[in-house]
Amino acid sequence: MAENFEQHSDVSATDLARLTQEAQAEATPSTAKIIWSEFKADKPAMVALFIIVGFILFVMIGALFINTPKMMETNIMAYFNQPFTSDFWLGADSGGRSVAKQLIVGSRNSIGIAIGLTIISSTFGICWGLISGYFNGYIDWGMQRVYDFMMMLPMTMMIIVLVTIIPHYNSVTLTLIFSIFYWEGTSRLIRSRTLAESEKDYVAASKTSGTSNWKIIFREIMPNISSLIIVDCTLSFAENIGVETGLSYLGFGLPSQTPSLGTMIANANDPNNITQYWWTWLPAALEIIILCLSISYIGQVLRRAADASQRQGAAD
């Protein structure tokens, strides 16, 4: 033993650097690195990532330069202006308002609400699932009954009723209303993973050594299922774009003076618009399809990155 120690103690600085490098090379790569190599291996995913990031940046910055109240003013001279002209790239709607500008502001609103909704509902769903899955027994039973009850509610109808009750709502209240009803999927997924996770040895060991329950839940179990959380958030983000636009389409989301992708598609409710003035609604519809497909595709890539057996990228 003593000899060994002697030997190890006089490792030269160059050797130490080399050993450190070797150790780093053999270490498990970080999550970010795995995800990046997964994207590099999958060219369509790279395209989807660039579309999404570029597009979100474009509408967020572009919308800053557009004066919304001025844009929404009626301009009778431009009544159903044809698309692909110099003033109106995508034409104008029945009020002579530029479709292209509405599309930018509308995308900003829709994506913004979807991001807010994803953050709020996922946070709530993750906490609900973790707590319900970790504490078995009465707490879990009670939380599951609440979950069952929420699943029974006709969601779309409840949201519409709530929106009509609240007199002055804006995008923040709207996001909160949606959040009440869209945490169940996440909570269910997280709960089942937490159930499996809390039976593992490290949790038992931590419990015996006296770690508090909250610390086990949020500092030990949660980091271990973080890849699942990332995947689930991405997929619910794509879904949430559909939630807001769908209700705005029915006329119960954002008010008609605030453009959203949904209110733009609602232009198609008029039989004249849908055929003759297709440019008032078709761009918004196509945009939603592209957005949802790209975001979910990114979600699929993240899922592959999270599951070592499905990875395509060389993890180096």
Binding site: G246, I265, I274, T275, W281, L282, I288
Partner: peptide, 28 residues
């Protein structure tokens, strides 16, 4: 995967436009 991702109301609107109005195969 594609059918799952696209919001259903968008499909309905596109469907009624193509098959109901443009081709006129179905009542609207």
């Amino acid at each position: 995967y594609v059918t799952y991702c696209i919001p259903f109301f968008v499909i309905l609107v596109l469907g009624i436009w193509i098959f109901g109005y443009v081709f006129g195969w179905f009542p609207t």
